[in-house]
């Protein structure tokens, strides 16, 4: 840490260091984390509120174009597939969108990239059950004994997505992704209930449980994982992501909305 880094850079930072005791009496205690967590990040401010004050659409477009010139549209290179085939992805994305659909409160699972999140998770340790006990035997379990299957989550997803496709073809003569929203909901309800359709080595309800969990994670996880695009999931929920301190706000009455921060914001040192 350079000397300049060690100096408090603004009043808020000084207050924070004082409160946390980190800089008390010049003694560094408990490790100095302020430098890592609180370094202000250079920010490009783009005033997007302009269009609300402007009536004419033409002007609005001009403003948007100006904005594009200043900030090039980001390319989401991580929005590509590690595990799913294109067909599996289309089914997963359509199903996730029904679990958490777009509405007037904000974007749905599709726009937030939840299916990319699921794909990336399945390709890694979670999908491969790397940290789960996977040694046999696998006899029939009582409901209190939890998951007892030789299948990995990756395999359960592949089987479950194929099940959605097969059931849709059988019932509607169309693939799941091509069904209407109402039809997709009907199919998912059947899968959630877990009675009507049999899957090999697993159940439709076990698959649906993973799909629902994966979708919620894809909406609200740190954007580093490929979902929660541009922290829109957090903004919609008014969740501030990760902040170093609420010391000054914790006792306050009334809801406080704070612009979210991601783990990426804490990395620029």
């Amino acid at each position: 840490m350079s000397e300049q880094d060690a100096k408090p850079q603004n009043a808020a930072r000084r207050t924070f260091l004082k409160q946390s005791g980190i800089a008390l009496g010049g003694v560094v205690v408990g490790g100095v984390v302020g430098g890592v967590l609180l370094r202000p990040k250079p920010q490009v401010k783009v005033e997007t509120k302009v269009e609300t004050k402007v009536e004419e659409k033409v002007v609005e477009k001009v403003v948007e174009k100006e904005v594009e010139k200043i900030v090039p549209q980001p390319v989401y290179y991580h929005q590509a597939l590690m595990f799913f085939s294109l067909e599996q992805f289309a089914i997963a994305e359509a199903a996730a969108e029904r679990i958490f659909p777009q509405d007037d409160s904000g974007p749905g699972a599709k726009e937030l990239g939840a299916a990319f999140y699921i794909d990336h998770q399945l390709a890694g340790p979670w999908g491969n059950n790397s940290r789960d006990y996977m040694m046999g035997p696998f006899p029939k379990a009582e409901p209190t004994q939890g998951m007892q299957t030789r299948l990995t989550r990756k395999e359960i997803f592949a089987i479950g997505l194929q099940g959605l496709q097969d059931y849709s073809m059988q019932k509607y003569k169309k693939g799941f992704a091509d069904l209407s929203a109402a039809e997709q909901d009907e199919v998912l309800k059947v899968f959630e209930a877990g009675e009507a359709v049999q899957l090999e080595g697993t159940s439709t309800s076990a698959f649906f449980g993973l799909l629902r969990t994966g979708t919620l994670e894809g909406i609200y996880s740190d954007p580093l994982y490929g979902g929660n695009k541009d922290m829109q999931g957090w903004k919609m929920k008014r969740y501030p992501g990760n902040q170093p301190s609420y010391f000054n706000d914790i006792e306050k009455d009334g809801f406080i909305v704070i612009e979210p921060k991601s783990l990426h914001d804490h990395l620029n040192h």
Binding site: V29, G31, Q243, Y246, F247, I250
Partner: peptide, 21 residues
Amino acid sequence: IERAACQYCAYCERFGCEYGA
């Protein structure tokens, strides 16, 4: 041993405390 005060950052259980609080 000297330790810093809690910042009420909401990441305790299942996490380590970066402040040592």
